Amino acid sequence: MILLVSLIPISFGILTYFFKKKTSLLVTISYILTFLFLTILQEGSFVVGNYSALKGIEFTFNFTIKFLLILFNLFSLITFFRIYKNYDHVFFSLWLLLTGSINGFFMSRDFFNIYVHLELASILTFLLLSYDKNEIRIWAALKYMMMSLVSLNFYLIGVGILYSNSGTLNLNYNLSNGINTFAFSFILTGLLTKGGLFFLSGWLPDAHTEAVKGTSPILSGIIVKLPLFIIYLLIPSLPNELRIFLYYFAVITAICSSLFTLLQNDIKKFMAYSTMTQMSYGLMIILINPPFFPYFIVYHMFTKGFLFMIAEDIYEKNGTKNLKELDGSQISLDTFFFAYFLADELRRIVPL
């Protein structure tokens, strides 16, 4: 039953590809069924094929996962209703596949299965980023894909070292027995590169800035936080020396990305660099107060996601993202107050 949370969007994504005239209906049904199962499923763990957790692939469904998935799917549904007239059935087939892979990612408790879902989400994001085949967007998507390839290879090297030591890919078992520091260094390097932190993630500004409408909110709202969620899962076994290093790294990257944020004239690039700053804050939260991190995910997903939606609407109306060129342009009063409220609320938790 747990697997249905991931299989329903993936299955309907395939159906959407073949029944293009029923795209909106199929996407809506997919979300309704996903919400239904998220509501009625009981908490617990499940191993595919009834193997032991050490040999099989374990999935976990608890209150935290339920909380994250309900709100992520709600955010994804809101984004869908904003753009359902903009794209064809192939786009939304990929959209549902991405939703299913993210659902599966949050429930996975096997190092390699986490990699599979993260890699699938990366490939689908790459395809969605440049869906209109614009040359600039294609190059931004390629940069994202190449950095993803490098970062996930580091992750896999670390996972291979773990497997050679413990004989299992089960995350909970490896945590309970302590993770090799050498393996940890490879895993963390990959995750920090993938997670949008300054110095390591040169892909993020261009990807966020050039993405087609509807993709930037998902990319900033959830995709960049997936690697940090893995660090959140690993934090109980993180050696103290690595915690100290990561804390100083987070502080330095937050300061540097904040400075770069202030230098931007492109409204979407401004928010992209601020996302890098907020990923550093997210890392600090994991190190200082891990139980608060799932709430950070949700809060940042809605606030920054909605801000990117507003930026997309402004660009669509005015034909420019340049803040200097937008000076003097008129926006509706409700849009202004909504943007001001979101930016103000975001500053209270994670200063821009």
Rank of each mutant, 00 (worst) to 15 (best):
Y115L: 08
N62Q: 14
Y163V: 09
E135P: 00
L68K: 02
D206I: 03
L98G: 05
C256L: 11
I286E: 06
F81R: 14
Y131A: 07
I157S: 01
T99C: 13
V27S: 09
T189Q: 04
C256D: 05
L4A: 05
F92I: 02
V150P: 04
Y248P: 01
F12Q: 10
S329G: 11
V150I: 15
Y155R: 14
L118A: 02
V5R: 01
S329F: 11
L128A: 13
L192R: 08
S30G: 02
M107I: 10
D344L: 10
T275P: 03
Y248D: 05
F293E: 05
L36A: 13
M276G: 06
T209L: 03
A254N: 07
G49W: 08
T64S: 11
N62K: 13
L3P: 00
W95D: 06
F249Q: 11
H89F: 12
P291I: 00
F245V: 09
N165F: 03
L204S: 08
I235P: 00
R137F: 00
L77H: 02
G56R: 11
N50E: 15
I349A: 03
L226E: 03
F302M: 15
K269S: 12
L326Q: 06
S258A: 11
I161T: 00
L307H: 05
F186L: 13
I223G: 04
Y84M: 06
L307P: 08
E135R: 00
I29C: 01
G319K: 12
G305R: 04
F91V: 12
